[in-house]
Amino acid sequence: MKIIVNGNEVVLDKEVVVKELLDKQKVSMQQYVTVQVYDDIISRDDFEKIALKEGDSVEFLYFMGGGAQ
C-alpha cells in the first residue's frame, strides 16, 4: 500500500493507523505533532483509531519556534 507523507511516497506492507505511521516514520514527540489527512486535522485522541487507506495524503505539521533570540 502506498501513501503520501509530507509529499513523499511511503510504501507500507499493511494497513496502519496514524500512531503506527508516526512510529514507522520515527517521529519523536508525537504528542506535539499535528497530523492532517487530506482536509482533516486528526485529533490526537484518534491517532490509534484512524486507519490510513491506499493513496492517502498525510501531512505531519510540527511546532516551530525560533525567530527572535
Binding site: M29, F63, G65
Partner: peptide, 20 residues
C-alpha cells in the same frame, strides 16, 4: 486551527538550544 495549544515549556527545542 492547526496547533491547538502550545507545547509544554521545554518540550519543543528553541533556536537557542537547537541552533539555527
Amino acid at each position: 486551527c492547526i496547533f491547538k495549544n502550545p507545547p509544554p515549556p521545554d518540550a519543543v527545542p528553541t533556536c537557542k538550544q537547537a541552533g539555527v
